[in-house]
Amino acid sequence: MNIFRLAGDMTHLASVLVLLLKIHTIKSCAGVSLRTQELYAIVFATRYLDIFTSFVSVYNTFMKLVFLGSSFSIVWYMRYHKAVHRTYDREQDTFRHWFLVLPCLVLALLIHEKFTFLEVLWTFSLYLEAVAILPQLVLLQRTRNIDNLTGQYIFLLGGYRGLYILNWIYRYFTEPHFVHWITWIAGLVQTLLYADFFYYYFLRFIGGRGVE
């Protein structure tokens, strides 16, 4: 564990808590894409399949449970909780996210580090996470103005993988033979997809107004 990875995990945790705070306290998911949340639930479900078979640390297992629990409960809230579901913008959240799942699965079957069931699904979760934010970014452009909580959520979610990239650079220089191109490229693509959001976020943030 290094400071970049810890910062990345805490940023990721913060993004999840901000979204849960918004949905649970003000019972609103306005501006939030259910499709992105569904993709993230699949990402965690396929990435943490080894949660019961390989123990890394209490921290690791705890965080996996938090991410699994929060992603599925957010999907549940947005789908089935009456008050929250009412604030879901179904007409605007129309990105065909299932079209992202198959290509990621095919790509994982073609490009992976080891051809085992767990490894292929783990690689699939990397590719899927890289594009999982697309429905949310499309929704963002359609709804123009979003509230601060949603803006913070997207900012933190985009930032965590950027911190992971710093973690990989650090590990590359400190651990011999630490080379994982698949993860590095997927992480880079994921972070670059947020580039224009970050641009507008900082413009608005510096301007002191909401994210538009």
Binding site: R5, D9, H12, D50, S54, V56, S57, N60, M63, K64, F67, W122, Y164, N167, R171, E175, P176, H177, F178, V179, H180, T183
Partner: peptide
């Protein structure tokens, strides 16, 4: 060379 792993990451 000992292959490093990413499975200790989230």
């Amino acid at each position: 060379p000992t292959s490093t792993t990413l499975k200790d990451e989230l």
